[in-house]
Design a protein around this nucleic acid. Structure first.
Lengths: 244, 244
DNA sequence: AAAGCAAGTGTCATAAAGACACAATAATAT
DNA sequence: ATATTATTGTGTCTTTATGACACTTGCTTT
């Protein structure tokens, strides 16, 4: 890796959200030596925008091309890298010529991404052995301020629930009402009444009920739904009204 | 000015919102030579956080110390400085040694600030002759992408209206109901029903009605209100419910 | 003293939200 | 086969919030 094409002082960290088994997950890398987890991230090339860089980085980690992405905050505390465990990984990897690049101060631009869990091919980078999902509330040791970054991303997600196509991007094409509800619950951090949730979400006319059910699970098979893209987009323009 | 204590590639631009004569204003500088307007901005010292830098910058432009500030977006398009009028100002000012610093690519971190209009002492910097307010919808020629930055700040303001103490920070300590309503209207970009607005805002219990009226204006003198700090803060934690 | 207009207050109809009850059904246990 | 179990589908009732609008009050101007 050659770092002369990258801008100094600027890094990117991505919180890639996925939804699986009724739980909200984030994609992380496990560092080779310290075994700590890290968010997928990288640096900014001299001729690219932050958004393009994040896309490039996530393409490498997930195999996905058209990822829903949004920057949400820059993490700029001067001492955020005080105990930079990643540096140890770098040193142990014997990557001497690049140490100067890594030792500088970085402002990290936080992005969150919304992906369909099953479409992702988690792929480690050269500093990590594994790339895998963690539950967003799971207790995992993360490098630097990455724990903070995840929490801030979650806050942002909550704030944007009525303005971004969050369900659309996180769920598979066909999904059940309980799945959609659980997604809302885990993002909001609170339980919702099943019947009132259904009434409200249906009132927006953003769902199409299919003549299919999800069988195989225990108990009564729930109907499948799809998003009505046109109506969903339109409804989001003014924000889905009211709170949850 | 010496730029060796500043980080390369990173700048800060602030949209300082103020509310005056029933209109939302932003603070701008008028450049010495090009006469274009620019947002107050600056650079990041090697040992400072973005938030501290923005505070330092705004202290210089407004005289104010404890400003409500929030970063909202990084502007990173590689060609955002293609026609950098500010550079012309610099060249004309004969500031040769610093040209290298200014000619590099900058990512600008956008902040918005909320201030009490009357408390601000607009103070130009070394590149500008004037520091003054413009109406946010006024047609003014702004350098670079500063027009975009203002618009994005406005969007963010709208989004956060129910989550941040926007009224509190923009209005004087005592204010009338019509003033508060107009503030909401100008932020939302639409008119609200006077009576329904009052009913709703009062239902949050975040206002204290005073036994005073604002006299001097034409027609019936409206009552003055103050924010109830405790209740306001608390209400914002979960967000004021419902839409406007 | 009257006019003009904004501010103060209230009412009614409709819509949304919250709480809850009961029937239907797919897999599992007997 | 049949009963069991846990979940899903659907509906009702009450309370609260919203939207539309009318009338009165009071400060300043003419």
């Amino acid at each position: 890796m050659d770092f002369k094409n990258f801008l100094n002082h600027i890094s990117i960290d991505c919180v890639v959200f996925g939804f699986h088994e009724f739980d909200l997950k984030a994609l992380t890398l496990e560092m080779k030596f310290t075994r700590e987890h890290a968010l997928p991230g990288g640096f900014l090339k001299t001729d690219e925008s932050l958004e393009d860089a994040a896309k490039r980085i996530l393409k490498e980690r997930t195999g996905l091309d058209k990822i829903f992405l949004q920057q949400f905050k820059v993490f700029s505390e001067p001492d955020r890298a005080k105990t930079n465990a990643a540096l140890k990984d770098l040193k142990d990897s014997g990557n001497k010529p690049d140490l100067h690049f890594f030792e500088q101060r970085f402002l990290s631009v936080g992005f969150f991404a919304l992906v369909e869990y099953t479409k992702v091919q988690p792929t480690p980078d050269s500093f990590s052995t594994k790339c895998d999902w963690i539950g967003v509330n799971e207790e995992v040791s993360l490098i630097l301020d990455h724990h903070t970054i995840i929490n801030e991303a979650l806050k942002e997600l909550r704030l944007q629930l009525n303005y971004q196509p969050i369900g659309l991007k996180l769920l598979p094409k066909k999904f059940t009402m309980p799945e959609l509800q659980k997604l809302y619950e885990v993002i909001l951090g609170k339980e919702l009444d099943r019947r009132n949730f259904q009434r409200k979400i249906l009132s927006y006319k953003i769902l199409t009920k299919l003549n299919e059910r999800r069988t195989g699970g225990a108990f009564k098979a729930p109907f499948l739904y799809e998003f009505d893209l046109k109506n969903y987009q339109q409804a989001l323009e003014n924000g889905l009204t009211g709170g949850w």
